[in-house]
Amino acid sequence: MCKITKKAIVPMMVVVFYLIYLYVLMAYFWQNGWVIRGSELTASNLKLRFLFDFAGYLVMVFVLILVTVVQEKSTKSLGLTSQNNYLTGGLLLLYLAMFVGNQDFTLKGFYQAFFYLGVVAFSEEVIFRGYLYGKIEKEYGFLSGVIISGIFFGVVHAFLPSIMENASIGVLVREMLSEVIGQGILGGAVFVILYKKSGTLYVPILVHGLINYSGVLLN
């Protein structure tokens, strides 16, 4: 039987507290009518949209990076390394090509491109793969790291849809459970494999961004 260690509990508790914070923030913004969809973005509400994205996603990432740099003098343990520069560069060029191909050079178009890569993909990969998976994998190995980080990764995707539908706690739990296997564990496993094979978190960040942004092109 695996012994539960402090090195595993601490990162899981950090992510639990982050998810609680994120859920409360999302609910607060929604109740006040401050949640701005990408299609609704204008110059007048850009600051509010960025505040939501920064407070909900990027603050946690910056905290993790800062703490890691202070403790380790490097971001290597988070996977933010310069390995596989050619692959990383190629994926970045592909993302730029998709942006140009979308032919939306309005404020909304630029922010969507930034959001899917610089906010969603970057924050989720750092939090769930670079930080949580990395800590769990060191203690319990690849499979445990994939499953535990995947569970948290799946759960977060049920938050905003449930809030926007004014769903009950029971519905929220059901939505979270439905997200855990597919988008959570299986989807997370793909990003972990990309991370481990490439040696850098920038590869799954870019692939994650490409997948998310492709939805814009298909609409």
Rank of each mutant, 00 (worst) to 15 (best):
V126S: 07
I4W: 06
E125T: 03
L46M: 09
L107V: 11
F50Y: 10
T88H: 00
I181Y: 05
N32I: 04
Y131N: 04
V16F: 14
E179V: 05
L93K: 10
Y23I: 06
L48E: 14
F152C: 07
F105I: 08
V203N: 03
F54E: 08
S144M: 07
L206R: 03
A158M: 13
Y195D: 05
R129M: 01
A55M: 11
A167H: 05
G182M: 09
W34R: 15
K7V: 04
K135Q: 12
I147R: 02
N219C: 12
G187R: 02
I193L: 14
L96E: 05
K47G: 06
Y213G: 03
Y133K: 03
V203L: 01
N212S: 13
L22P: 07
A189K: 02
G90N: 00
F54D: 03
E165F: 05
A8T: 12
N84H: 12
Y133A: 04
T5P: 02
M60L: 14
V119R: 00
G33L: 09
V119A: 04
D104N: 13
E175H: 15
L51H: 01
Q83L: 09
V216W: 11
Y140C: 02
L25T: 12
L91H: 01
R129W: 01
K138D: 07
N212W: 02
F54Y: 12
L210P: 00
Q112N: 14
F159C: 04
G199D: 03
V15Y: 03
L25A: 11
N85E: 14
V207H: 02
M12F: 04
V119D: 00
L19E: 14
L107A: 08
M13W: 12
E139C: 01
Y57T: 09
K197C: 02
G184L: 04
V61M: 12
L218W: 10
I65N: 03
S162N: 15
Q183Y: 13
I163D: 06
I181L: 15
I151L: 08
G109T: 08
V171P: 10
Y28T: 12
K73W: 08
K196P: 02
P11S: 08
F152Q: 07
G109I: 08
V63K: 05
F142C: 00
L78P: 12
A167M: 06
I136L: 01
T68D: 12
V171K: 13
D104L: 07
T81Y: 02
S74Q: 13
V16I: 15
L48I: 14
L87N: 09
F142S: 00
Q31G: 15
I181C: 02
I205M: 05
L58H: 07
L186W: 00
A27L: 13
M176V: 05
E165G: 09
T5H: 01
L80H: 13
G101E: 08
F29M: 15
G38D: 08
M1F: 01
G109Y: 06
N32G: 15
N212L: 01
E139M: 01
